[in-house]
């Protein structure tokens, strides 16, 4: 019975604890350009949190700061007891933070399966000998990781392209595979940079459904950047609006939508 429950919801095993994400007055400068200006945000566990704003507002920079790829000159980003500003980027998956990039960053020469299995890298303990013999503990571990990956494959409905080389797939499918790879890390916080960019309506609806499913089933926090206002307003719990590196509004989608400052800065400009 324990066996069954463990594999029915494989993401419940081995997962690092979930925390609120607290961004505390971070500022980021590139030379004389102030990309982010004293941004403070709180993302509660299991929320879908959208960051919107015109091009160049600093959305991706903010995500890169959370992801430890950029180092803000001021402020702290707390996830649990850890200040992400001080952590090397490769430690983030071990803290439960995963990322999918805006311009797909998959291992394009590998198969979908290999890409997803790489997400299990941080959990692998077997040594070379065990891996070679594919026997005993090594085999059990491999099967367990594969089971996790298969769960993700089912969730994202990419069974048919398991063995395909990623570089040969369509853009929409690659986006889906990248989400799958991030999920293979079994994260508690997932950062999605424009997960629906360049997709048609049907693909967008699928992606929105996956994001809702993940939050619903896995209970993880989703921070996403998206330009499609319809989708953002539909799926998000909270929306933050950036303009020229400043935070101009944050709140429930309906409040943000009616905020005059936002209409002026963002929605207004687009519909003019």
């Amino acid at each position: 019975m324990e066996f069954l429950s463990r594999f029915d919801r494989p993401y419940e095993a081995q997962r690092p604890p979930i925390h609120p994400l607290i961004i505390d007055k971070i500022s980021l400068n590139f030379g004389g350009v102030r990309a982010l200006n004293e941004i403070s945000l709180r993302v509660d566990p299991s929320q879908i949190f959208a960051i919107i704003g015109p091009n160049g507002a600093g959305k991706t920079s903010l995500l890169n700061c959370i992801n430890a790829l950029y180092r803000p000159q001021e402020g702290r980003i707390m996830y649990g007891k850890v200040d992400l500003v001080k952590v090397p980027p490769h430690q983030l998956p071990r803290l439960g933070i995963a990322r999918a990039f805006q311009n797909i960053e998959l291992f394009s020469h590998m198969s979908v399966l290999d890409n997803l299995m790489l997400g299990r890298h941080i959990y692998m303990k077997k040594n070379l000998l065990q891996a070679l013999l594919y026997w005993g503990a090594g085999q059990r571990e491999e099967i367990e990781h594969r089971r996790f990956v298969e769960y993700v494959i089912d969730l994202l409905e990419i069974q048919g392209i398991r063995k395909a080389i990623v570089g040969s797939l369509s853009y929409g499918l690659q986006k889906r595979v990248e989400l799958g790879r991030a999920l293979s890390l079994n994260p508690t916080l997932i950062l999605l940079d424009e997960p629906m960019a360049g997709m048609n309506t049907e693909e967008k609806e699928d992606m929105a459904r996956y994001i809702l499913d993940i939050r619903e089933e896995w209970g993880i926090t989703v921070v996403l950047i998206e330009h499609d206002m319809g989708v953002v307003m539909d799926i998000s719990d909270q929306v933050a609006v950036l303009e020229f590196g400043r935070l101009i509004a944050v709140g429930k989608p309906e409040d943000v939508r009616s905020n005059p400052e936002v209409i002026r800065a963002y929605l207004g400009r687009e519909h003019r």
Binding site: N67, H90, Q91, P93, R99, E105, L106, S108
Partner: peptide, 16 residues
């Protein structure tokens, strides 16, 4: 192999 393919992605997969 992952590092050779895409360093940024490798880093986001927890590879130093």
């Amino acid at each position: 192999r992952a590092t050779a393919d895409d360093q940024q992605a490798a880093m986001s997969m927890g590879i130093s």
